[in-house]
Design a binder for these strands. Structure first.
Length: 425
RNA sequence: GGAGAGAUGGCAGAGCGGUUGAAUGCACCGGUCUUGAAAACCGGCAUACGUUAAUAGCGUAUCCAGGGUUCGAAUCCCUGUCUCUCCGCCA
């Protein structure tokens, strides 16, 4: 959530910034609420104070054996008044809460203005798309040729947007996750976590998935949510914590399945395993000092890029424009990997700096030696990488004329030294 | 799934209807002493919100969470969550 102070002191400017990212804040409505809040809160607290004072003197009078009846009469009148005042205040605060919990983060100055993905800006490009002297197959065909991808069985078991992997393709999927975790823990300084895949509403609220995006998540009968990304449990690890400044930055990583309803994406990417209800992802999360979050974003994006470079997959890095960014982010880099069958770059990672937006929701703070009060930390998250899409990218970029797939050098040790998948004898 | 016990400040641990945001100890910070350190002694030490120019005052809230009883609740009642012990079951 945004700093409520910002909505009080710089409402106009804030509203303008929100408009840049396509969010229309009801300025007049908010001002009205804020005004009412001020009046009623002051009034309520004054009444509360009055009652406490009298109640205390009742105690004293009783101890001395004085007559307490006049005091009881006095306090009786306050009761009702306080009751209604309290209720009015609660209603207003609920309304204000609603507004503020549904309001996205502000974009950083360095983010390009724009409406949608068409306005995103390419920052850099790495590698050259390979050339093929045969007709390239997409990952669905390659999956069939290699008997490794079975969409029909998955559909029978679960419905659309599920995938079943078998044999060497499943093995490669596992190997990719291993490679990613190893690189992040051994080279990039992250600590590996195994986390719950079901979390409660409070946790989903902390990282910004609730209340606004309830429809995107799967919910269980006992009101737990299947995590849409490991960002949710990892980031919330510092909820309500006061961290020693010396312990920052905290760098966490986990390999988890991710579950998404994909409501509203009907007809999009229906073929293959690009967009699924369930997919694996290795996630990176950083909890950092406010001064360091933008440099941490560059670093983390580099960590995701390092995986693509190790796999020698061509990609480009883009910075999302104001209109295309996610709810909690103040700045986001997407990595897009080259998919020869689609003849285009497709998203494979998203790295965001959320500054204090999630930290404020979670009350995640740090204490520094000098400062009196604990300060909010900054949080970042990034995919490093989406495992399923990485598998697709490897399959398509490393395909051979006969439909077999070369195993990237860096991956071979994770696949018992195999150099090819389904190489004909 | 059955039976019982519990949840208080960074930690340990009192309090069980009145002036208690909460004793005491430890930890931490400042000071006295000391060549320095330790010990001893003195002082300080929660968070959020509101009000405000103010990180000054003042106010409100917070003793797991949410309801209730009461003039007044950390203390009494109800519901929920979590933890622990024993039994059962189980990977």
């Amino acid at each position: 959530m945004l700093d409520p102070q910002l909505l009080r002191t710089e409402l106009e400017v804030t509203a303008k910034k929100l408009a840049e990212r396509g969010y229309d804040l009801d300025v007049a409505g908010w001002q009205k609420l804020e005004q009412a809040r001020k009046t009623i809160q002051v009034e309520t607290e004054a009444l509360q104070n009055k009652r406490t004072t009298i109640s205390k003197s009742i105690g004293q009078a009783k101890a001395k054996g004085d007559d307490i009846q006049p005091l009881l009469d006095e306090v009786a009148q306050i009761g009702e008044q306080l009751e209604s005042s309290k209720k009015a205040l609660k209603d207003i605060l609920t309304d204000m809460d609603k507004v503020i919990l549904y309001t996205p983060n502000l974009a950083d100055e360095s983010v390009p203005l724009g409406k949608d993905e068409a306005d995103n800006v390419e920052v850099r490009k790495w590698g050259e798309p390979g050339t093929f002297d045969f007709t390239v197959k997409d990952h669905v065909e390659l999956g069939e040729v290699n008997r490794g991808l079975d969409a029909e069985s998955a559909a029978n078991l679960s419905g659309s947007r599920f995938t079943l992997l078998t044999g060497e393709v499943a093995q490669m999927h596992r190997a990719l996750a291993q490679l990613m975790l190893d690189m992040h823990t051994e080279k990039h300084g992250y600590r590996e976590y195994y986390v719950p895949y079901l979390v409660n509403a409070e946790t989903m609220k902390g990282s910004g998935q609730l209340p606004k995006f309830a429809d995107d998540a799967f919910i269980t009968e006992d009101e737990r949510y299947l995590i849409p990304t490991a960002e949710v449990p990892l980031t919330n690890l510092v909820a309500d914590a006061i961290i020693d400044e010396a312990d920052l930055p905290i760098k966490l990583t986990a390999h988890t399945p991710c579950f998404r309803r994909e409501a509203g994406s009907y007809g999009k990417d229906t073929k293959g395993m690009i967009r699924q209800h369930q997919f694996d992802k290795v996630e990176m999360v950083q909890i950092v000092h406010p001064d360091d979050s933008f440099s941490a974003l560059e670093e983390m994006t580099g960590h995701a890029e390092a995986i693509l470079q190790a796999l020698e997959l061509p990609y480009r890095t883009i910075v999302l424009c104001t209109g295309d960014m996610g709810f909690s982010a103040t700045k986001t880099y997407d990595l897009e990997v080259w998919l020869p069958a689609q003849n285009t770059y497709r998203e494979i990672s998203s790295c965001s700096n959320c500054v204090d937006f999630q930290a404020r929701r979670m009350q995640a703070r740090y204490r520094s030696a000098g400062a009196k009060k604990p300060q909010l930390v900054h949080t970042l998250n990034g995919s490093g990488l989406a495992v399923g899409r990485t598998l697709i990218a490897v399959m398509e970029n490393y395909q051979q004329a006969d439909g077999s797939i070369k195993v990237p050098t860096v991956l071979q040790k994770y696949m018992n030294g195999k150099t090819h998948i389904n190489q004909p004898e």
